[in-house]
């Protein structure tokens, strides 16, 4: 489904963020990308979301090269991906309900669909009571659950989660990971970037380990070893 082929990303001043990375992700797979801070995890996800362009190599999504997507077609491509970020990236001027509904609005869903689906998803992530609250009125865990709700509401093919537990305590972290696992079990491909050892070791799923931008390990049932 997703294929990284000899992908290199070099930032100005010759800073190599990702160096000749090659790996594939199958449909409905749960892949964790692990590494220390600065190992290139976030850059890898940014490249997949076409937020950055690779300096060398190609990334394929469902057989199509992301590099060749024209700027005008980027919104359409991104609607096939749900993204969860460490800093939540919720729209501060919109309520929880409006934030989640926004992902449906951009794909042109009808008002009826929005009225039907948003409360359901908010219920799944346990935010029914906070539907009319603005992001600044939510706790870290609630913000992340709202971000997950927004990422999955339009049923994307794949969800990218970049350090989703980075700002959360262990209790809330566990809740978020359980939620992501549930989403993957329902049939969504999931790529999780993290440096949380306990979480990776408890998952028992595929782990791709990065160091200095290079893939140093790719195991089917991996553990956090650095």
């Amino acid at each position: 489904m997703i294929s990284f082929q000899h992908v290199t990303k070099i930032y100005p001043r010759n800073t190599i963020a990702v160096d000749d990375v090659c790996f594939d992700v199958e449909e409905k797979e749960f892949v964790s990308v692990v590494g220390k801070s600065g190992a290139g995890k976030t850059t890898l996800l940014k490249l997949l979301l076409a937020e950055e362009k690779p300096t060398q190599g190609e990334i394929f999504f469902q057989g199509k090269s992301i590099n060749e997507i024209k700027p005008g077609n980027l919104p359409e491509f991104r609607r096939e991906i749900g993204a969860v970020f460490q800093d939540y990236k919720l729209l501060p001027s919109k309520t929880t309900h409006e934030n989640v509904a926004y992902a449906l609005e951009v794909i042109g869903a009808s008002d009826q669909e929005i009225a039907r689906d948003v409360p359901k998803v908010l219920e799944i992530v346990g935010l029914t009571e906070k539907a009319n609250n603005f992001p600044e009125e939510l706790s870290g865990g609630e913000k992340q659950r709202a971000a997950i709700a927004r990422a999955l509401i339009h049923r994307p093919e794949v969800i990218l989660a970049d350090e989703p537990t980075g700002n959360l305590d262990p209790y809330h972290s566990l809740g978020i990971i359980r939620l992501l696992l549930k989403i993957q079990e329902m049939g969504t491909t999931l790529i999780l970037a993290t440096h949380n050892r306990e979480i990776i070791n408890s998952l028992g799923k595929r782990v791709v380990t990065l160091e200095d931008g290079r893939v140093i390990r790719d195991e089917r049932r991996g553990r956090f070893i650095l």
Binding site: A83, K89, L90, L91, P92
Partner: peptide, 16 residues
């Protein structure tokens, strides 16, 4: 600007 970036990453078109 941050809000615009988020909207872009969520898949919103320029005019939206």
């Amino acid at each position: 600007r941050e809000e615009i970036k988020i909207q872009r990453l969520v898949g919103a078109g320029s005019w939206f």
